[in-house]
Design a protein around this nucleic acid. Structure first.
Lengths: 238, 238
DNA sequence: GAAATAGTGTCTATAAGACAGTATAAA
DNA sequence: TTTATACTGTCTTATAGACACTATTTC
């Protein structure tokens, strides 16, 4: 490293890949783009793109999020965090690409915008990605999505991240449905209410009640400032 | 991305940086190298190096671990995991470098081996890194070390990672001292014993007892296969 | 015997799990 | 009136925290 000649070290392309999750009609969904060209033409891939010369990977992720969802970053009120970096030498047959993967969560994102290299972009139900008629996934994106899903499930245990999936104001049942949807099983609703209300500043009640569905009018809440759930609200481990 | 001309995307160097922790004489310590050249000449830096053309970042981290500690990867019985990727455009003034940071834990590593670009390499007590007479740290490595420390502290709560800091056979007090050292406070020893012994396969007893210190001969244990502590053994959160 | 350490026991507070049961509103 | 939903309450069990106490060994 005496001289900084490019031949001293291998050059890499660096990209970001985004796992953008939302809950559409009670179904946990992820945004994927259909690749319009080789390699993996016709396969589905995570949205993403190259990190620019004058931005870090966080900024690149915000930029791509905006480009793919059409939501301006100033209007984006969800959550974005780095997941993990994937760097296998042959993960992209064209060249050496290191990808910094991100997880984004947001409520009710609009229908996606297809980008330059994408023939199509749409929300996929997560449960449809790994079953019988699963779409073909490009690159190592199946692995990335699996890791991202586990991250989201785990973070619901000890953070208030579930709030990112609901729009204010919401009912406690709305929040409970988030846990049910993401975890794939329903925690006891009565115990769930007790837990959420016992965490200081997880949610705060409003003066209003919802209407429409049969039954009593449920109280509406807004998000509180708490970020950590302590003690954690754990999933069952057998 | 129609053509793969290098001018279509910015070229990056990709490195790994290793947070190698061990407990020396009851003190949580991290391996740092003193930089022998600009930039940050004379500052202390995390050991690391470039990711090679035909390896992924995990392999590069294993290779660097071996080079810096002198421990062959086949003999390395500690723990290595990816932490986070750091990519600020100006984190290295020479060129655009993206660094994939790792955390390694091991018991009783030998004195380090200085590499090519390191004038010196030594173990630093973690508590000395951020105090009055703290060494000057190169690049964004102070940030990386802070993140790494928090990762280790957190993982002691819900994984059996503390086992990576002791050599077999060990006493329950040895293991308790790991928690005390890493967390910076002493959990109740009696409750600690109860907790460790209640987690199936966290540790398993041997037939032997230790000797030397005053008091009864403590039973010796070896590591079990469990990786998860459930329910977690939590630090206090006020 | 003093001091240090290993280990056991116990009481209490907290929280989780598993419900039962009641009230309210829409269709 | 039926049904879905929104709560409230309660009993049991699991676990954590605090700490007293005993036993064993070295010096």
């Amino acid at each position: 490293m005496e001289n900084y000649n490019p031949h001293d070290y291998p050059p890499f392309a660096v990209t970001v890949d985004l796992n953008i999750f939302t809950i559409k009609n009670g179904v946990l969904s992820i945004l994927l783009v259909n690749r319009g060209e080789a390699p993996y033409e016709g396969h589905w891939a995570l949205p993403g793109g190259f990190v620019g010369v004058n931005e870090n990977s966080d900024a690149a992720a915000v930029r791509e999020l905006e480009e793919e969802t059409g939501v301006r970053s100033s209007d984006f009120n969800g959550h974005l965090e780095q997941l993990k970096t994937y760097s296998d030498p042959n993960r992209d047959p064209r060249m050496r690409v290191v990808s910094v993967a991100y997880v984004a969560l947001a409520p009710n994102l609009p229908e996606p915008v297809a980008g330059d290299d994408a023939a199509d972009a749409r929300w996929w139900a997560v449960e449809d990605l790994f079953g019988e008629d699963a779409p073909r996934l490009a690159f190592d994106h199946a692995t990335i999505i699996t890791d991202a899903l586990e991250r989201v499930k785990a973070k619901l245990e000890y953070t208030t991240l579930a709030l990112q999936f609901v729009t204010e104001p919401f009912t406690l049942n709305d929040l409970w449905r988030v846990y049910t949807t993401v975890w794939g099983f329903a925690p006891d609703l009565a115990n769930f209410r007790r837990k959420v209300l016992s965490v200081p500043n997880f949610v705060s009640p409003t003066q209003d009640r919802s209407t429409g569905s049969p039954g009593p009018r449920p109280l509406l809440y807004v998000s509180g400032d708490a970020e950590i759930i302590y003690p954690p609200f754990t999933r069952h481990h057998e």
